[in-house]
């Protein structure tokens, strides 16, 4: 898939993708190569370029069900699943309601999570979640992540409520259609294509979150990011490389559907841009 049409000048031969391949190889070498290298063994004393004791022991340990990293992976997956579904559904409903609100404050509120630091928010939210008995619980982490994920989704959905959808809604209502009919004939066809993207986006937000899970989770909710930070603290670079690659796997896998969906991710940002300006 190509998003930029080639420079076609009559009489000129099509250029090969050499520069793109060079850039791709550079990025692979900068990002994936060192992680794969370090994860392929233990120890890395100066000035060796490869681990002191090469082998796949860290990978087999990480993928064993007894391993904490494996448990953290399951927790991260569960959190990402719950947050993405609740965040997307909430975002859709919030976007419908705010489209009807005449006050600008709700819209501003939707943009707040885009710019505020999750770790600072987590520290400041801890008190109220602790009072509600939700600190140190998965439910507390989900609620805090939802406060971010729902507005993130709502902003994306907000751009769907155009004059056309308003006219369509009016038409369905004028013809005696109920709210269900509006959702079936107007809302669903409009949001159908964007829902998978929102699910992916909110799942990624949750999967990569460290600020909220570390503050609200209180050490009891252990995700891949929490393990990665712990490994970095103890200086276990080889294990940290394994955790980093595990952390990167879902975003990498999701990059493929995102590419198929014609790079919708930047389009969301376009949505935010439109919302603001």
């Amino acid at each position: 898939m190509s998003v930029v049409t080639e420079l076609h000048i009559p009489g000129k031969r099509q250029k090969p993708d050499t520069s793109g391949i060079v850039i791709l190889l550079t990025v692979v070498m900068l990002i994936l190569a060192p992680l794969l290298l370090l994860s392929g063994g233990t120890g890395w004393t100066w000035p060796a370029l490869v681990p002191d004791r090469p082998g796949g022991m860290l990978w087999s340990a990480a993928l064993s069900p007894d391993n904490e990293l494996f448990g953290a992976m399951l927790t991260s997956l569960l959190l990402a699943g719950v947050t993405s579904i609740t965040g997307t559904v909430s975002g859709l409903l919030i976007s419908r309601a705010t489209a009807a609100f005449s006050n600008p404050v709700p819209r501003m509120l939707l943009l707040f999570p885009w710019i505020v630091s999750p770790v600072v928010a987590g520290i400041s939210m801890y008190d109220q979640l602790a009072r509600a008995g939700l600190a140190g619980q998965m439910s507390g982490v989900v609620l805090a992540q939802l406060a971010f994920a729902a507005p993130l989704s709502a902003v994306v959905f907000q751009n769907l409520w155009s004059n056309r959808t308003r006219a369509m809604t009016r038409l369905v209502r004028d013809l005696g259609g109920s709210t269900t009919a509006v959702w079936r004939h107007v809302v669903w066809p409009a949001v159908r294509r964007i829902i998978p993207v929102c699910l992916l986006q909110t799942a990624l937000f949750s999967w990569l979150d460290y600020g909220l899970v570390s503050t609200i989770g209180g050490g009891r909710v252990e995700t891949v990011t929490v393990r990665l930070f712990a490994l970095l603290r103890e200086g276990g670079m080889n294990q940290a490389a394994v955790a980093a690659l595990i952390l990167m796997t879902p975003p990498l896998l999701l990059a493929v559907p995102l590419a198929i969906l014609r790079l919708q991710l930047p389009d969301h940002v376009a949505g935010v841009s439109r919302e603001i300006s």
Binding site: K15, D17, G20, I23, L24
Partner: peptide, 14 residues
Amino acid sequence: YGAGKSLEAALLLA
């Protein structure tokens, strides 16, 4: 320089 799919792949990887 006509960088195409590979450039996009590199950007998505990053």
